[in-house]
């Protein structure tokens, strides 16, 4: 059994006619980092919120199929049960600050207090989360005084402290500057190393290509593809879905640099470099042969 099992998930927001999610089925294993890509109206946010049960419980609307996390059915269990297994972090770091706590440390405690975690346990979890997100230095600062990147890491820490098996991040860096994004991406990597299953919706393809185990490509609420970054980003019809492959892939595709012994194109700087070297040694090898022939 997989940790996340989505089966024929369909969903329509109230007072709309179009399906926001149209028959999505996929599974993800514990410890995987799954990237979700698609243009702005593809259904990324809706899918993310369906994993925690905000769809359909918060919005209502029509729902079909099922989402199971560790065997638990999200629709039947409701948000309050689901959040013990799945945490979610939203785009805007500001609106995730509760506003009722005076320090970062207390802010992270908010969820734990509501879950009724014992005090000693609570403090251990907060310390661990602070460490994991590398924000120990700010633990006594006021939440609203942090920079965007710090605030977003605090939001992630607040969710991580609740010890979910899965963390869903819905475009967590779209409102941050590169430095802040970099901080958050580094934090996401350390979560992944800890064995936490990460679902990450993102526009920054270069980052996703480097970190994700698999990519889900959404379009108009449908799952178009669900495969490794190399395969998804090497698709020739990517533009039809409003998605641009990483720059490395686009350039290599145009000049015909393939991955060694594969039919896919490089998706990271390192792969692009490897493909270049392979190409180069092939060219110099063949020209050496030619030269050798002449001297013979």
């Amino acid at each position: 059994m997989s940790l996340i099992e989505v089966e024929h998930l369909k969903y329509r927001y109230p007072a709309t006619e179009k399906l926001a999610l149209n028959d999505i089925s996929l599974t993800a294993e514990a410890g995987e980092l799954i990237g979700i890509v698609g243009k702005n109206t593809a259904g990324k946010t809706t899918f993310c919120q369906a994993l925690v049960g905000l769809v359909p419980h918060f919005y209502k609307g029509a729902y079909g199929g099922s989402v199971r996390i560790g065997g638990m059915d999200v629709k039947e269990s409701g948000v309050d049960e689901t959040i013990r297994k799945v945490g979610i972090v939203f785009q805007n770091p500001f609106t995730q600050v509760t506003g009722s706590k005076l320090t970062v440390y207390e802010e992270i405690a908010f969820g734990l207090e509501h879950l009724g975690i014992a005090r000693q346990d609570m403090m251990e979890r907060i310390d661990h989360a602070l460490h994991l997100l590398d924000i120990e230095a700010y633990k006594d600062r006021a939440p609203f005084d942090l920079s965007g990147g710090q605030m977003q890491r605090m939001a992630i820490a607040s969710v991580i402290a609740m010890r979910p098996q899965v963390i869903v991040l819905d475009e967590p860096t779209s409102q941050l500057d590169p430095q802040g994004s970099e901080e958050v991406f580094r934090a996401i990597q350390s979560l992944s190393r800890e064995g936490i299953t990460v679902i990450l919706a993102e526009h920054k393809m270069e980052k996703l290509a480097a970190y994700a185990d698999r990519i889900a490509l959404l379009h108009e609420g449908m799952l178009i593809d669900y495969d490794t970054p190399s395969r998804v980003f090497s698709r020739s019809d990517l533009a039809e879905y409003g998605v641009e492959a990483p720059i490395y892939t686009r350039v290599c595709q145009a000049i015909g640099f393939r991955m060694l012994d594969m039919d896919t194109y490089p998706v990271t700087l390192e792969e692009a470099q490897a493909a270049y070297e392979a190409q180069h040694s092939a060219i110099s090898a063949s020209s050496q042969e030619e030269q050798g022939g002449r001297y013979d």
């Binding site: 919120q49 925690v52 905000l54 918060f58 948000v79 309050d80 959040i83 945490g87 979610i88 939203f90 805007n92 500001f94 609106t95 995730q96 509760t98 506003g99 440390y105 207390e106 405690a109 908010f110 969820g111 734990l112 207090e113 509501h114 879950l115 009724g116 975690i117 014992a118 005090r119 609570m122 403090m123 907060i126 939001a155 607040s158 969710v159 609740m162």
Partner: peptide, 26 residues
Amino acid sequence: IDTKERTLALQVRGFNVKGSKTFLNE
């Protein structure tokens, strides 16, 4: 808009969870 987003954020932090609350501060 902020309120809607904050409501979502509070909900996933267990704001509506039934049962007794604990406190960080003694």
